[in-house]
């Protein structure tokens, strides 16, 4: 496993600080439900960054990574749905809870490779598309300021990060492991920056 460098640590620290800012101030104008889900999403990002700083990339070997990394897109997409598509809040909440539980159950009671991958791909796919498309469509339609589209960019980056991690965990990485671990801190910091500026604009 690649040793974590000082630069990697600095990038994760910046990610943690951006996530902290977002929890404290960046989501203050949202509704109670959205504040709660955003806090969970950015909170997991913050704690994950701190743990990588402390324990290095070895922590990515943990079987919990796939489950925990699902929380970030799910909770952020829940917050977006609650704020911008409030009629869909309850159905999407049910989808999120069921999806998350399915991932947890299939992770620990493995019922074949397809049964393990399918829920992860579905949940990540739907949540990722919401974070990616909703801000961009709303910005294009003029329902939100143009800068809000940056949240969609953050969503794309989180999707790339999630894909790289999933392939890494599956043992069939699309890029060499070293390259993925070199890209990961950069992706994290860019994603957090896009979210902070995007939410500030929206």
């Amino acid at each position: 496993m690649k040793k974590i460098s000082v630069i990697d640590r600095i990038l994760f620290l910046i990610t943690g600080l951006l996530a902290s800012y977002q929890i404290v101030d960046g989501i203050a104008d949202a509704g109670t439900f959205a504040i709660t889900t955003y806090t969970i999403g950015f909170g997991v990002l913050l704690v994950a960054s701190l743990l990588i700083i402390i324990l290095g990339f070895d922590i990515l070997d943990s079987p919990l990574v796939v489950t925990v990394s699902t929380i970030i897109p799910l909770s952020l997409s829940l917050g977006l749905v609650s704020e911008y598509l409030p009629k869909w809040q309850t159905p999407y909440l049910i989808f999120a809870i069921l999806g998350f539980l399915t991932i947890v159950i299939t992770r620990y009671k493995s019922t074949g490779k397809l049964a393990t991958i399918l829920p992860v791909a579905t949940v990540h796919g739907v949540a990722g598309m919401i974070i990616f498309l909703l801000p961009i469509i709303f910005s294009l339609q003029g329902k939100t300021p143009g800068g809000f589209a940056l949240v969609g960019i953050g969503g794309a980056l989180i999707g790339i990060g999630g894909l790289l991690l999933t392939f890494l965990k599956s043992g069939k990485p699309i890029l060499p492991k070293e390259t993925i671990l070199t890209l990961l801190p950069i992706l994290f910091v860019l994603m957090a920056t896009a979210f902070v500026f995007g939410f500030a604009a929206g």
Binding site: A28, T39, G43
Partner: peptide, 18 residues
């Protein structure tokens, strides 16, 4: 302490508890 800082404290506490 303001709500925003309380939220952040709750997140950090959740990390400690986990």
């Amino acid at each position: 302490t303001e709500w925003g800082f309380l939220r952040l404290m709750a997140v950090l506490s959740a990390g400690l508890l986990s």
